[in-house]
């Protein structure tokens, strides 16, 4: 026990003391404290404080370290050793607080702003993903219009039904097969031209030879627009599952199919395959017939 006390006492004596080492070197070099004070442009009181390791007298650490360096240089003591002693003695003392003691609050380790920003980004990514998965199948450049009234499905006395409002009535027909009783034979889709007893009927018949027969068979919802060579709308509306639309028009016919997967085309009775170049996602823009 007593040995331990002696050991600790020896350790305390052996602890580095920058000031004492400087004072010892000064005496060994036969330099007076007055001379050191004159060289450093300091008061003797401050030089004494340096030798007594009372660095708080000198102000901020920058001053104490600066004076120690110069003092060590004057008495030819390694500067690094003196500074190492200083750092051991003043390990806890950091730089001055810069903005004074009246700090309103300590810096929190938990940076709330980063978490908020992270949450916002996650929400934005989730919303974008949701939109991408459930994005509307129709991409139409036309301005929003009142939904086109679809042709009223009702049994017709003849094998035709008139087209809905806003559509050219003279060249749009619906396949009435779906509306007819099952016992009745399926009536083939026929292009029905309005049988107007006018003088132009002959001319219309002549033009019919040049016209292209187009059948749209829907297997699901698909927004569809069809225009003829003059830009007249032959069809403009949402096709639904099971619906068959027969159209005729002077080529070239321009088609916009909002969801190409849900419609199949027959041109003059022949299946028509949409080319990949005409596709943009599920939306197809194509021209049929013409030069």
């Amino acid at each position: 026990m007593a040995d331990n006390a002696d050991d600790s006492g020896e350790q305390e004596v052996a602890e580095p003391k920058a000031g004492q080492r400087l004072a010892k070197a000064r005496r060994a070099n036969d330099i007076s404290m007055r001379d050191i004070a004159k060289e450093l442009h300091l008061d003797e009181v401050k030089v004494q404080a340096l030798e007594d390791n009372r660095f708080e007298v000198l102000g901020a650490p920058v001053f104490a370290k600066g004076y120690l360096r110069k003092y060590a240089e004057l008495v030819s003591v390694p500067i690094d050793d003196i500074l190492a002693d200083y750092y051991k003695m003043n390990r806890a003392s950091g730089p001055p607080p810069v903005v004074g003691p009246k700090r309103p609050k300590a810096v929190t380790e938990f940076a709330l702003g980063r978490w908020i920003a992270g949450i916002i980004i996650v929400i934005a990514l989730a919303a974008a993903t949701y939109w991408f998965v459930n994005r509307p199948v129709l991409v139409s450049a036309s301005p929003p219009t009142k939904p086109t009234q679809m042709p009223v499905r009702q049994p017709l006395p003849a094998n035709q039904e008139s087209a809905g409002a806003g559509l050219p009535a003279d060249n749009v027909t619906q396949d009435p097969a779906a509306d007819l009783p099952a016992s009745e034979p399926a009536i083939p889709a026929v292009t029905a031209r309005a049988t107007e007893p006018d003088a132009n009927s002959a001319a219309v018949d002549a033009a019919a030879d040049d016209e292209l027969q187009l059948q749209l068979r829907f297997t699901g919802d698909c927004w569809t627009e069809v225009t003829d060579v003059d830009g007249r709308r032959l069809f403009f509306g949402l096709g639904s599952d099971g619906r068959v639309v027969n159209l005729s028009g002077v080529p070239p016919l321009r088609l916009l199919l909002g969801n190409n997967d849900n419609v199949s085309l027959l041109v003059d009775g022949e299946p028509y395959a949409v080319r990949p170049a005409e596709l943009r996602g599920n939306t197809a823009r194509l021209t049929i017939g013409g030069p």
């Binding site: 450093l40 442009h41 300091l42 920058v62 001053f63 370290k65 600066g66 004076y67 360096r69 110069k70």
Partner: peptide, 17 residues
């Protein structure tokens, strides 16, 4: 340069870390 400034101004001059 610290010595020059000390001699010219008569004030203590220290170099920062």
């Amino acid at each position: 340069i610290d010595k020059l400034l000390m001699e010219e101004t008569g004030l203590p001059v220290v170099i920062a870390d």
